[in-house]
Design a protein around this nucleic acid. Structure first.
Lengths: 201, 201
DNA sequence: AAAACTTTTAGCACCAGGTACTAAGTATAG
DNA sequence: CTATACTTAGTACCTGGTGCTAAAAGTTTT
């Protein structure tokens, strides 16, 4: 005697809330043309928490879960740093770092770890990446921990050549050479206002 | 007759909430050893909204604001795509993409746009980056819009060589060459379970 | 059609975490 | 000692719920 309407509505409810988890029961009720109570019962049977809980879930997931790759100055946890010489960081591959289907880490996640480490190892007021040459040697899977090592190979004025090596349990997953340009804060400001700022003369 | 205690507390309040915006007035009151009302007054004078609003702010900022760089399969908006030949995407540089101090886009943000476009242009079931050689020609600043173009230069079996060029208002900001490896879904699964999966034979 | 069951709706008391406001108590400086 | 700033207390009200009971409406089954 199971109702088809009910089933359909609950499926739709799941879909709608996945897309927009911020809708209140009243808004959902209006959208589905049923009463608020019906929506509540649906949520109960589906095990979906109330708006404020859903809001909180989204908020905390993004807030402390590494505070999002893009908002961090440094991706991964720094384990060792010898100014202008060597640095090492580790990053555990989380679900949000991988391709949904293959569960293999996206290239730019590893790049981000490497790139931010290259910047960090210079320990300069600030530095910018000028160029990078890198090879993804082995795919990295969900749950693996990547150890990234940066070694300064060449120092020439404001330029640094940094060798990067990423490993997962002793197997190399990424190799590369970065060129980073250091700048004093004042230089930065001047450069910013010059129209033709370039990394290479 | 301004109170020093009050001023200090309000400063601390701002700091604490920046670090953890999910604390209720009661929790804050306990932490500062004052009454809930005092915290409320402090929030009022500082223009800080209530917990639920703060929660919502954090949630929506991260939810629709591109859903975070790391969780997207594609960074930027695709404007054009000709399967296995050419693709173009645009990305407006947001505050979370730049270094706090210099307001210049972090290298890995541009890399992410370029890398995901290189993957997308192949239009394969799925593909992985094998290597990349890139140069950041000009710094990109907050608010600028980066147009990224990917052109497939070489097709050899499952390998693709893709030329990437990023521009801001006709000025080149990034140049690079990517090598991407395509894989059928079944191959992927096989590869994943083989212990020595490598991109290069 | 009546009985039996499912589904939907309504109403109630209650809760957290507030807003907005009034009023009173406590410091503290002049 | 008093004027002013600051702090605390208490009230009514709000949103978006939970948890509960009860009844109405809709479907089947007999």
């Amino acid at each position: 005697m199971r109702s088809k309407r009910k089933e359909k509505r609950q499926e739709a409810l799941k879909r709608v809330l996945l897309e927009d988890p911020f809708l209140t029961d009243a808004e959902l009720a209006a959208r589905f043309g049923v009463s608020v109570q019906t929506i509540r019962l649906d949520r109960m049977t589906l095990g979906i928490p109330e708006v404020r809980e859903r809001l909180k879930d989204v908020a905390v997931r993004h807030f402390d879960r590494l505070r999002a790759l893009e908002e961090q100055d440094l991706i991964g946890e720094v384990e060792a740093l010898k100014r202008d010489e060597y640095a090492r960081s580790v990053l555990r591959i989380q679900p949000e770092h991988v391709f949904t289907r293959s569960r293999i880490a996206r290239g730019h996640v590893l790049f981000a770890q490497a790139n931010s480490l290259a910047i960090a190892v210079t320990d300069a007021d600030w530095a910018l990446t000028a160029s990078a040459l890198l090879q993804f040697v082995t795919p990295v899977e969900l749950g693996q921990t990547v150890v990234m090592e940066a070694t300064v190979r060449l120092k020439a004025g404001t330029r640094r050549e940094i060798v990067i090596k990423g490993t997962v349990a002793a197997r190399t997953v990424l190799e590369g050479v970065w060129t980073v340009v250091l700048m004093a804060h004042e230089d930065a400001l001047r450069k910013k206002h010059a129209t033709g700022a370039r990394y290479k003369a």
